[in-house]
Design a binder for these strands. Structure first.
Lengths: 105, 105
DNA sequence: GCTGTTGTTCGACGTTAGTCGAACAACGGT
DNA sequence: ACCGTTGTTCGACTAACGTCGAACAACAGC
């Protein structure tokens, strides 16, 4: 099974931004930003596993994450270094923001 | 006519990112980033004026722009200082990227 | 070989977003 | 007063997105 993981510079900025412009995905990214690898099942943000799988796919195809297959599990990690190199400040800017949307919206 | 211009910190990050995650709006922001004010009509990016008006509204309501009414015209400018203060590196990261999407997509 | 676990894929559904033309509103000139 | 200019608003349409349950695939353990 070929994990489709594009080069970050091949991905349109708008796709990167769109990938980050979702609450569930942002929570995933926040978790990943703590460092290390996480199995997909780790992310329990009140969505079904189908939805979770979908979001992880969006992140992966936007060049934000790297996935390692091991047995029946898949371990995901943030491509932080590449991200910081190509878009310095982007991740930090997004991550240093209140976890929940400021206004309840 | 009340221009609805929210405080930047009242706007969810996801809304800011979503506002930037569109080609037309990104082109507008790129233009605005050159500094100064621009009348709405300045932005000719191959969309109708209805669509242009829509995009400017999205940018304004995401807290990205400030609009000054003068006669029949409206002058738009980037809220760069506030943006840089709340999301340091965000704008730079987004703007220092090739104008057109890397892959033709 | 079953069975359970872990994820992905496949419709399907409702919602939102981008787009347009047409109608409207506000202002400036003459 | 009448135009023309400049923008906004109003449906309407289509495409894309987030969501889910159900079916499927791959592996691990017994």
């Amino acid at each position: 099974m070929e994990l489709h993981e594009p080069e970050l510079r091949e991905v349109p900025v708008t796709a990167v931004l769109a990938a980050l412009a979702d609450d569930v995905r942002l929570q995933i990214v926040r978790t990943l930003a703590e460092g290390g690898e996480y199995a997909c099942g780790t992310f329990e943000f009140g969505v079904s596993k189908a939805t979770r799988s979908h979001h992880l796919k969006v992140l992966r195809e936007a060049g934000l994450t790297r996935t390692r297959v091991a047995g029946t599990s898949r371990y995901v990690r943030l491509r932080r270094d590449e991200l910081d190199r190509l878009y310095p400040g982007l991740l930090d800017a997004v991550l240093t923001t209140p976890a929940t949307a400021p206004t309840g919206r």
